[in-house]
Write a protein that binds this DNA or RNA. Structure first.
Ligand code: MN
Ligand code: MN
Ligand code: ZN
Ligand code: ZN
Lengths: 149, 149
DNA sequence: GTTCTTATTGAGATTGAATCTCAAATGAGA
DNA sequence: TCTCATTTGAGATTCAATCTCAATAAGAAC
């Protein structure tokens, strides 16, 4: 977690009349110090492992705040769990997801972004956000034979 | 539900050694006779209303079969519920979703589909499927002022 | 049509992610 | 330091989906 990140978090809390608590800072630090796309439960367990015992409730509540105030991005790959990723100072991207091993790779494509705008306009929708996920087999998994167990 | 649809369903059941039960037929009929993107619970209630009392469990189980054998398409718009749509004789499309009223509009764009293939190839992923959802405000909802209640 | 085997059904229990409740603890302004 | 609204933690609750298991019924064999 950089000083800038912490500063931005403090500013959000202040601006929204939310209190700066050690629990909130630890959750934010855990998210900042990772480039993964992580579940709330995963963050909760990572903190426990470090003897930073923030309750499950507080982790969920903090992730809600971080998402609401644009400090993390959130994705749903269809398994009923939100995955969060470090977002401050990052920019929009979409995802390639391996259906075998779960590896997530990020991509951006300005051409697709432009066409999306055209599509939305054509249907008279005011575009707010989008979800674009490509599911497939990554290089490694493609090589492995399919197990029949 | 057309004869062809019923025939295809019967073929799947036969091929997979699954039994043709009145409950399964009623669930399939309900899905076929609708152009909406519907939740399992919705289908369950619609059947009840018609005094076709198929249990909730059976509706869920039948939707699993229909999806597994490609008789319906399934989508997740991030609210934790699967939505199913009539799929037989239809072809791939993506969705525009109104974040205010929930209206879902379908679109296809061959250009995007092509670029997706390029992206997957570039990252060495063997593309299997994709999710592309544009969220925004539909024509009607755009006109309405935002309620502050 | 009758019998037999096995899949299916329905009711209710269970799961798991996420949210809610409420008493106790604590941040932060005065 | 005092005060008080906010936050925390533990456990209860929600909700979609899945599981369990006894009763039922499909459909093959005769
Ligand atoms: Mn990402
Ligand atoms: Mn559709
Ligand atoms: Zn992989
Ligand atoms: Zn709308």
């Amino acid at each position: 977690m950089t000083d800038l990140e912490l500063k931005k978090f403090k500013k959000v809390l202040k601006d929204e009349n939310l209190r700066l608590t050690p629990q909130r800072v630890e959750v934010f630090r855990e998210v900042c110090n990772s480039e993964e796309h992580r579940e709330a439960e995963e963050i909760y367990l990572a903190l426990r492992k470090k003897d930073l015992n923030v309750s499950r409730s507080t982790v969920y509540r903090t992730m809600d705040i971080l998402y609401k105030y644009d400090l993390v991005e959130r994705m749903d790959i269809g398994d009923g769990k939100w995955r969060y990723e470090h977002w401050l100072n990052c920019h929009h991207h979409d995802h390639l997801i391996c259906i075998r091993c779960g590896t997530i790779v990020e991509f951006t494509n300005t051409q697709i972004e432009e066409i999306q705008k055209d599509v939305a306009e054509k249907f008279n929708y005011q575009l707010v956000r989008h979800v674009h996920q490509l599911f497939g087999l990554c290089k490694q998994c493609r090589k492995m034979p399919i197990s029949v167990n």
